[in-house]
Amino acid sequence: MPKEHIYRVSTVWTGASQGTTSSYQSYSREYTASIEGKPLFVGSADPTFRGDRHLHNPEDLVVIALSACHMLSYLAICVRNRIRVIDYSDEAVGKMAYKDGKMKFIEVVLHPKVIIKAGDDLQSAIAAHHQAHQECFIANSVAFPVLNEPVVLEFNDPQASNLKNF
Rank of each mutant, 00 (worst) to 15 (best):
R82N: 13
G101L: 01
H54C: 10
L163S: 13
K104L: 07
L147Y: 01
L40C: 09
T32C: 00
V151D: 09
P39C: 01
Y74T: 12
N57T: 10
F137C: 11
D46I: 08
D157Y: 09
H70A: 02
Q123G: 05
T48M: 13
P47F: 13
F105V: 07
F144A: 01
G15N: 04
E107D: 05
I86Q: 15
T21A: 03
V142R: 00
M103W: 10
R80L: 04
H54E: 12
Y31R: 01
L122V: 15
L40G: 03
C136P: 05
P47Y: 12
E59M: 03
P158A: 08
D121Y: 08
S73G: 14
K104R: 15
Y31K: 02
A76G: 10
A33Q: 02
D100R: 07
D120G: 06
S141V: 09
L40I: 11
S26L: 03
Y31D: 01
G101M: 01
I6F: 11
K113V: 05
G94A: 07
R50Y: 07
A132T: 12
T48R: 14
M103D: 04
L72Y: 14
N162L: 12
Y98A: 03
V114Q: 07
Q134C: 03
S161V: 13
F166D: 14
H130P: 00
S73W: 10
A143L: 02
I116M: 12
G51S: 08
L66C: 11
I86D: 15
A45E: 07
L55V: 06
H56Y: 11
R50L: 12
N165V: 15
L147Q: 09
D157N: 13
T20C: 00
E30P: 01
P158V: 12
L147M: 09
G43M: 02
Q18V: 00
N140V: 11
M71F: 07
V109I: 10
P112A: 12
K38C: 01
S22A: 05
K95T: 04
V12S: 12
F41R: 06
V114I: 13
L61W: 08
S73H: 10
S26F: 06
V109C: 05
L110I: 01
K38R: 13
Y7L: 11
M96L: 10
L72A: 15
K95D: 03
F41V: 09
E4N: 08
A118Y: 13
A143P: 01
A97V: 03
N162H: 14
M1P: 12
A16T: 02
I35Q: 15
R50W: 03
V79S: 10
V109W: 00
W13P: 02
A125I: 14
L72Q: 15
E91V: 04
K38M: 02
R80T: 11
D60S: 08
M96Y: 08
L72I: 15
E107L: 02
H111K: 12
F105A: 07
V93Q: 09
V62F: 06
E91L: 10
S34Q: 03
F49N: 06
Y24A: 08
V151Y: 09
N156E: 06
K99G: 03
V42R: 06
S23H: 01
R53D: 13
Y88F: 15
L72K: 14
K164A: 15
E91P: 06
T14L: 00
I64L: 14
G94Y: 04
N162D: 13
D52G: 02
A92Y: 00
F155S: 10
I126G: 00
G51D: 02
